Simulated scan of single mutants.
Amino acid sequence: MKIRRVASATIASGALLALAACGSDGGNESQAPAPQAPATSAPGNPADNTASADGVTTASDVYGPGCSEVPTSGEGSVGGMVDDPVATAASNNPLLTKLVAAVKATNLVDTLNSQQAITVFAPADPAFDALGAKFDELAGKPTELAPILQYHVVGKRYDRDGLEQAGTVDSLNTAGGPLRIEGSGENMTVNGAKVLCGNIPTKNATVFVIDKVLMPGTNQ
Rank of each mutant, 00 (worst) to 15 (best):
D161M: 01
D170G: 04
Q150L: 10
A12G: 15
N49K: 02
A12D: 05
A90N: 05
G177L: 12
P126K: 15
K203N: 05
L145Q: 11
P38A: 08
D211S: 11
K194G: 02
L131P: 05
G66Q: 07
L108H: 08
N204M: 06
G26L: 12
G80N: 02
A105K: 10
L17E: 09
F208A: 02
G185Q: 03
K2R: 11
A7Y: 05
T143V: 15
F121K: 13
L179C: 04
G140T: 14
K194W: 07
G76H: 03
A175R: 06
A122Q: 12
A87G: 05
A37S: 11
P216F: 07
G185W: 02
A32H: 08
S52I: 00
N187Y: 05
G80K: 00
P126M: 08
L149F: 13
G177A: 09
V109T: 15
A133G: 12
S77G: 04
N173K: 13
S41M: 01
G14C: 10
D48M: 07
M188F: 05
T189M: 06
F128L: 12
D170N: 09
T88P: 01
N92F: 10
M215R: 11
P126N: 11
A166L: 01
P94M: 07
D83K: 15
A205G: 03
V109N: 08
P178Q: 14
